[in-house]
């Protein structure tokens, strides 16, 4: 690793995060003790992701780091640890299907098969028109009926949900 990678000046946070995004992040910063701005990191990444078509670029993560006065590496660690952050481009809508035990018992494999056929993509892939990303997820805490994937932020009325999509998304 060249030394300028670690000493590189941070990007101008204000330029990359819109005023609206910063204002929303600030509401989260206010929840925590003043010396713990980094507690807002998870929310900030989510908000930045939503403002960027549903995925995070390195520049955006750097901007979050600068804005919350955190080492960029700590932000990368958070972004890569949690499954709801996307580090590659995704479709305008994310369709998440739970295939864990309660859903498996009730035929989630058939739901996946149907969606793969209908969308023409496999799990983890995005349709050519950039509209849908199909994602396999773990138990979403909605095991009350047969598996039925839900898209975007709607809560799983049944099972399967895809929260956190771009606000501009419309099918």
């Amino acid at each position: 690793m060249s030394s300028n990678e670690v000493t590189m000046p941070r990007p101008d946070a204000a330029a990359l995060l819109s005023a609206g995004v910063r204002a929303e992040i600030d509401t989260w910063v206010a929840k925590y003790p003043p010396e713990w701005k980094r507690s807002a990191c998870m929310a900030a990444l989510r908000i930045a992701q939503e403002g960027n078509g549903g995925w995070l670029t390195t520049e955006l993560m750097d901007a979050v780091a600068a804005y919350l006065e955190m080492p960029p590496m700590d932000v990368y660690e958070v972004a890569s640890f949690y499954s709801m952050y996307e580090l590659k481009p995704v479709g305008r809508h994310k369709i998440c299907v739970c295939t864990n035990i309660s859903c498996l018992i009730n035929g989630s494999e058939r739901v996946v098969e149907h969606l793969e056929k209908r969308l023409g993509v496999g799990l983890g892939e995005t349709t050519a028109d950039g509209r849908y990303t199909l994602k396999e997820v773990e138990c979403l805490g909605a095991v009350l009926r047969e598996p039925d994937p839900r898209a975007d932020r709607r809560d799983p009325g049944r099972a399967g949900v895809a929260p956190w999509r771009t606000k501009s998304a419309s099918a």
Partner: peptide, 10 residues
Amino acid sequence: IHTHLGAGAY
């Protein structure tokens, strides 16, 4: 009381 939202990690 403040809400903290997770991001997908059992």
